[in-house]
Amino acid sequence: MKGNYDKAFENVIRLRIMSILMVNEQFDFNSFKELLEVTDGNLASHLKNLENSEYIMVEKSFQGRKPLTNYSATDTGKEAFKLHLEFLENLIKENKP
């Protein structure tokens, strides 16, 4: 079967994070929090997890005095996501009568 089911995207929050980063060059922590409706700690742990698998990159900066944490998808992450998508699509195709 083509594609690859990626354990990293088994969790729905991580799947959502990666979906957002596929279509946004950058996305910041607070915007994630607002869109995903999760707590700081929960979000941070999922982001850390994706960062550890080198699927996403972190860039810390300041906007005025407020710290701004921006995330973006790495090439490895995009590739993994595409394979995951392919897997899902094939799964649907094969299960169609």
Partner: peptide, 12 residues
């Protein structure tokens, strides 16, 4: 899952 991905891409 695919629907979830699509909806997140749109909303973001």
């Amino acid at each position: 899952e695919l629907a979830e991905i699509k909806s997140m891409m749109e909303r973001s």
